[in-house]
Amino acid sequence: MKGLLLVVVVSLGLSQGAKLPEKWKQCPPGDGWLDCLREAVEFAITTTAKEGLPSFGVPMLDPMHFDTLLIDQSTGPVSIKLEFKDIDVTGMKDLIVNNIKGDWKEWHFDGVIPPPLSLTGGYVIQGKVLALPIVGDGKCNLTFHDFKWSPINVKFKEETKKGKRHLLIDDISLNPETSLLEMDFQNLFNGDKMLGKQMNIFLNENWPEIFGELKPAISKAFGTAYKDVGNRILSKLTAEQVTQM
């Protein structure tokens, strides 16, 4: 899996022995540092999404691939267990970073993807949506319009291993927003085309309520994934390497 934080970590400047791509901007402390950093992070994310970063072992970020993504919502109007399998998320290459602020205790980001953000792959679902039962196993496509994380809050912590200090991610909270969610779940109700069609219509007509109920689960799932990716990188760097600009 790949994610936003991986690129953010790389873009902030590493050790003297690590080389950033020549076109990437580095931002020394001083006036305009946050504006410079916003531009640098956006450029790093979008170019890595398109090209990857082989020297750091980073593949392309667009599409992002998840082997599995579980949303387990046991209470409320939308009470479902939804597992996505072998899914690709496309749209990271179009990310716009509106602002970035904070210090090395906590960071805050706003990220917007104006073109649709798409999630495609397999799924298994069982439960109830607004009192209606739902069950299915097949392919799916979810399209988020004007998608944004507003904000992404990242808290850091320090750990010492083998005498070296490391800056790791302690917690990530995400607030997803979208102007429209379009859903297409194939093979609902064991392939009953009539019931499947009606359920997809129902889901799309009631997308705001469904998205609102699923936001906490979506935030938790993606936050866990991004934390894991970020710490895979941070654990290989000392705290001094990460915070030097």
Rank of each mutant, 00 (worst) to 15 (best):
K2V: 15
K2Y: 10
L4K: 08
V7E: 09
V9D: 01
G13A: 05
G13N: 02
Q16M: 09
E22N: 08
W24T: 01
C27W: 05
G30P: 02
D35P: 01
L37G: 07
E39D: 13
A40N: 04
A44Q: 00
K50T: 12
G52K: 03
G52I: 08
L53H: 02
P54R: 11
M60C: 14
D62V: 12
T68R: 12
Q73K: 10
Q73S: 09
S74R: 10
G76F: 01
P77L: 04
S79I: 04
E83T: 12
D86S: 11
D86L: 08
V89H: 05
T90N: 06
K93S: 13
I96K: 15
N98W: 14
N98G: 14
N99Y: 14
D103E: 09
W104R: 06
H108P: 00
I113R: 03
P116K: 10
L117I: 08
G121M: 03
I125D: 00
I125T: 00
Q126L: 10
G127V: 08
V129C: 02
L130G: 01
L130K: 03
L132G: 05
L132Y: 07
L132Q: 10
L132T: 03
P133A: 12
P133D: 09
P133V: 14
I134T: 08
I134S: 04
V135M: 12
V135I: 15
D137P: 05
G138P: 07
G138R: 07
L142I: 15
H145P: 01
H145S: 14
K148T: 12
W149R: 07
P151L: 10
I152N: 03
F156L: 09
E158C: 07
E158N: 13
E159W: 03
T160I: 15
K161T: 13
K162M: 12
G163L: 08
K164P: 00
K164A: 15
H166K: 06
L167D: 01
D170Q: 15
D171M: 13
D171I: 11
P176Q: 08
P176I: 12
E177K: 12
T178E: 01
F185W: 04
Q186L: 13
F189I: 09
N190D: 14
D192L: 11
G196K: 10
K197G: 10
K197C: 09
M199L: 10
M199E: 06
N200Q: 05
N204E: 11
N204V: 15
F222V: 15
T224V: 13
V229A: 15
V229G: 11
G230N: 09
N231W: 00
L237C: 02
A239D: 06
M245R: 11
